[in-house]
Design a protein around this nucleic acid. Structure first.
Length: 555
RNA sequence: UGGGUCGUCGCCAAGUGGUAAGGCACCGGGUUUUGAUCUCGGCAUUCGUAGGUUCGAACCCUACCGACCCAGCCA
């Protein structure tokens, strides 16, 4: 991919200035997913931003699992996320980090805050705490436990850690301001009791730090200079800064927020994606229609194209919705350059060339790519019986139709020009065969009589081809904003998001190709073998994306 | 009169006092053995609205309008 000279986004500008002004010696970022689900296209933006900035400015980017809630997390997700990040083309700095690596530090810092008189154990239960918190428009009031002595707090917190209390019985809160207009500053909870074993620390802990207490300190421990997150964390920033100021942390990271990536015709929330899987709307998290990284990988999107798309969509604080056509463009742009060409007939219609000898077979040679000679040429057997696509033949048509019509000529891609004579139909009137003739001496040249064919269609030898299944995907939703307002996104599902075609006929050169190679089936789109269903004996191709189609169907 | 944030072409997005980049989409012309690619051209007298400051404003000021976020012992 060529380096574009796009202007820096606002975060890149901040980083650049901080480096130039020696605010930081070098940039250190991090991608901090919670291992509680699969990564989707929105995460891809964060990955590209964080790793991209490190790359651009000669810094480092960590991969840190933000694992402070053992009830929702699992190592299954840790592994999947690592694979997704690698596939996207990024390499994290050093070892993987876990917020749970810092549980000891965090515990010590909690004790520190208690000793400073800045944290206390609160016995209010959930409902009471909510009551005391006040509302958006009314201030909260102090917890009756707010003024416990340091000694009592130390003892109580130790008991919390020892497992002496039930879940919910009490929590550790930091003493800030119950009247703050910022709800996050109304004595936020920094430790809660969860008698759950943790995927990394096992049963060592029964109390776990909250996101707010863990994230910034994790950043400080890792020397993160620019802690980049999405807009909804903006109001957490004063709290983030409060901890950094009030704790003896080893560095002072700063938080910056950008708007998350929204794409029309798709949903990106773990909850909604999960229900698509749970309700069997799709196969799994990696169904080729899913906007998950795993799904897009299986679909055949390339990491380069995804990165390019994210780069083009930009980074700002505007909450916009990017048009999915921008994504599709990036995929096509990338595949057009890189995908080898091949022919595959999706809806076979037999064509008999009545003036072509029955026992004759020629071998046509076709380039691997129209403007790349580094891709090897292909050999295409050609004989009396061929298949073309049902859509490429009509008994009669107006002049806008540039395909095969009775009495008219068409070019068979990389082979002869043919002229149709007759359509053979079955008892129901369905066309089951076309009888046609080749025009002699038209391979690589126009007909000698000067009557040039209108169009070019693809074909495959009827007696020498590869049978395969082709899966055509369309957007999962019909509605550009499936989850806008109070809408039930399940009502906007596109019933035709998956079309399975069996008995498709592909050229034989595909027989021994690697399973992960993407092809352009000419005039149809870009395809790749499905990593789950395709086998050498039962080829299954996914359509990554169709070709741009500017032909107005409809007469 | 709770607090915070955001409003530049249909969609993203530059621009931050000197007279509206770019991409996607769309519309036309050309090339073409893929109705693809490629290529050429078109596409905001106007920057949420209304006032004001200024020689000059999308950029500064004021008011208004609209959208989003915050009351998890989720992240």
């Amino acid at each position: 991919m060529t380096e574009s000279t796009r202007p820096l986004n606002f975060i890149e500008k901040i980083v650049k200035e901080d480096i130039e002004n020696k605010v930081v010696p070098s940039v250190q970022t991090r991608f901090p997913p919670e291992p509680n689900g699969y990564l989707h296209i929105g995460h891809a933006k964060s990955i590209c931003l964080n790793f991209g900035i490190a790359q651009t400015f000669g810094g480092q980017c960590n991969l840190r699992f933000d694992d402070t809630n053992p009830e929702k997390e699992d190592t299954e997700y840790v592994e999947a996320i690592k694979e997704d990040v690698r596939w996207l083309g990024f390499e994290w700095s050093g070892d993987i980090h876990f917020t749970s690596d810092y549980f000891d530090d965090l515990y010590d810092w909690a004790v520190y805050l208690i000793k400073e008189g800045k944290a206390y154990v609160c016995d209010l239960d959930r409902d009471q705490a909510r009551e005391y918190r006040g509302t958006l428009k009314e201030p909260g009031k102090n917890s009756p436990y707010r003024d416990r002595s340091v000694e009592d707090n130390l003892e109580l917190f130790e008991k919390m850690r020892a497992g002496d209390f039930e879940e919910g019985a009490c929590s550790l809160r930091v003493k800030i301001d119950m009247a703050s207009p910022n709800m996050h500053l109304r004595d936020p909870i920094i430790y809660r009791i969860k008698k759950a074993s943790h995927h990394q620390t096992g049963d060592k802990w029964c109390i776990y730090p909250s996101y707010d207490f863990a994230h910034g300190q994790g950043d400080a421990i890792e020397g993160i200079t620019h802690s980049i997150c999405t807009l909804e964390f903006e109001e957490h920033r004063p709290l983030y800064d409060w901890f950094i100021e009030n704790l003896p942390v080893p560095s002072k990271p700063r938080q910056y927020e950008f708007s998350r990536l929204n794409v029309n015709y798709t949903v990106t929330s773990k909850r909604k994606l999960k229900s698509l899987v749970d309700e069997n709307v799709v196969d799994a998290w990696n169904d080729p229609r899913m906007p998950t990284i795993a799904g897009m990988r299986r679909r055949g999107y390339t990491p380069e194209a995804l990165r390019e798309f994210i780069d083009k969509a930009g980074v700002s604080r505007n909450e916009g919705i990017v048009d999915v056509s921008m994504l599709e463009f990036a995929i096509r742009e990338n595949l057009n350059v890189n995908a080898a060409r091949a022919m595959c007939v999706l809806h076979p219609l037999k064509v008999t060339l009545t003036n072509y000898p029955e026992d004759k077979t020629e071998v046509m040679v076709a380039p691997g790519h129209p403007n790349r000679d580094d891709l090897p040429a292909r050999e295409l057997p050609f004989s009396r019986e061929l298949f073309i696509d049902q859509d490429d033949f009509r008994e009669e048509a107006n002049k806008k139709y540039k395909r095969l019509v009775i009495g008219k000529r068409v070019r068979l891609r990389n082979a002869y020009v043919i002229e149709a004579d007759e359509a053979i139909k079955d008892a129901d009137g369905n066309i089951i065969e076309v009888r046609a003739r080749i025009i002699e001496d038209t391979v690589g040249k126009d007909p000698a009589d000067g009557v040039k064919p209108k169009g070019v269609i693809h074909w495959v030898d009827a007696n020498n081809n590869l049978d395969c299944e082709v899966r055509l995907y369309d957007r999962l939703f019909n509605d550009p904003a499936p989850d806008a307002g109070g809408k039930d996104f399940m009502q906007s599902l596109n019933p035709n998001s998956l079309e399975i075609l069996k008995g498709c006929k592909a050229e034989t050169s595909l027989a021994n190709s690697d399973a992960d190679i993407r092809f352009q089936f000419e005039r149809e789109g870009y395809f790749i073998q499905d990593s789950l269903y395709s086998t050498p004996d039962n080829l299954v191709y996914n359509r990554v994306i169709g070709l741009r189609d500017t032909w107005e169907k409809q007469v």
